[in-house]
């Protein structure tokens, strides 16, 4: 459903994303992990067609994003890392605006929006301007807007940041439900517990390069191949992540903290 071929983005002399080859199947929940500045958001922006790659290409459901961005964008839902919204619109107006952009039939859009707002417990505040919403509430509205047109692929950049535990749990439930119905979910996250428990596969990126990709077993094998871990078979995703992305630095920090 998502395929990238040699996806590269260079800013000046810096490679934000370097030759990324990925393939994510239908109905799969894919976790995209990496330290700050690793290139996660840049990769997602290229995949959804809002950032032109320096090289390489992206296919979403066999649609080349660069060649036919309109078709590609019509099948995706996107939740950015910052829920920047039109502060002078109400939540309801915002959802109806998004429905308009996706040309969703009116009655269907209204029912869907109502259900989503109700589910996120925002229905009582649907006619308040978004400027008055907290970060978490805006995040919920943005997630609702991404689901409104029933996308086939959902891109989520740190979807649970700012959400209260109940809402975070709800989002996780929604993602599982969507995946079971064949929707592909591509999400970046720093919360490794979410990635470990929810994702079918995980990709770890650092300095723009994909270090490892696969399920937990695949990652353990990758870490074992690196040879630094004593018991990779018993390691958590956190252990694997630290090992793969900078174990030596972490060890130094630990030594420093221990005095």
């Amino acid at each position: 459903m998502i395929k990238t071929y040699g996806l590269t983005k260079r800013f000046g002399d810096t490679f934000a994303v370097d030759n990324l080859d990925l393939s994510v199947g239908a109905g799969e929940i894919f976790g995209f992990l990496g330290p700050n500045g690793a290139g996660k958001t840049t990769s997602i922006n290229m995949m959804i067609g809002i950032l032109m790659p320096t090289a390489g290409r992206v296919e979403l459901a066999d649609i080349d994003v660069a060649e036919d961005p309109i078709s590609a964008k019509s099948i995706i839902g996107y939740v950015p890392d910052q829920p920047n919204v039109y502060e002078k619109l109400t939540a309801w107006e915002f959802l109806m605006f998004v429905a308009n952009l996706h040309e969703v039939e009116r009655g269907r859009a209204e029912k869907k929006a109502r259900n989503l707002l109700e589910m996120f417990e925002l229905i009582d505040r649907a006619d308040e301007q978004l400027g008055g919403y907290s970060h978490g509430m805006r995040q919920k509205v943005v997630i609702a807007s991404a689901l409104l047109h029933e996308p086939r692929i959902l891109f989520m950049d740190e979807p649970t940041v700012g959400l209260d535990p109940t809402s975070a749990r709800l989002v996780k439930d929604i993602l599982r439900e969507l995946a079971s119905e064949g929707v592909t979910v591509f999400m970046s996250t720093h919360i490794l517990e979410i990635a470990e428990r929810m994702c079918d596969r995980v990709g770890i990126i650092q300095k723009g390069r994909l270090l490892a990709v696969g399920n937990m077993d695949d990652l353990r094998q990758a870490a074992a191949a690196k040879g630094a871990m004593k018991h990779p078979e018993a390691s958590t995703l956190e252990d694997l992540f630290i090992e793969l992305t900078g174990g030596s630095d972490y060890a130094e920090v630990s030594r420093y903290l221990e005095g």
């Binding site: 109502r114 707002l117 009582d124």
Partner: peptide, 14 residues
């Protein structure tokens, strides 16, 4: 479901 106010944004789907 609770009713939510109509909005001019939805008068036409375009």
């Amino acid at each position: 479901s609770p009713t939510v106010p109509d909005t001019v944004i939805r008068r036409h789907v375009s």
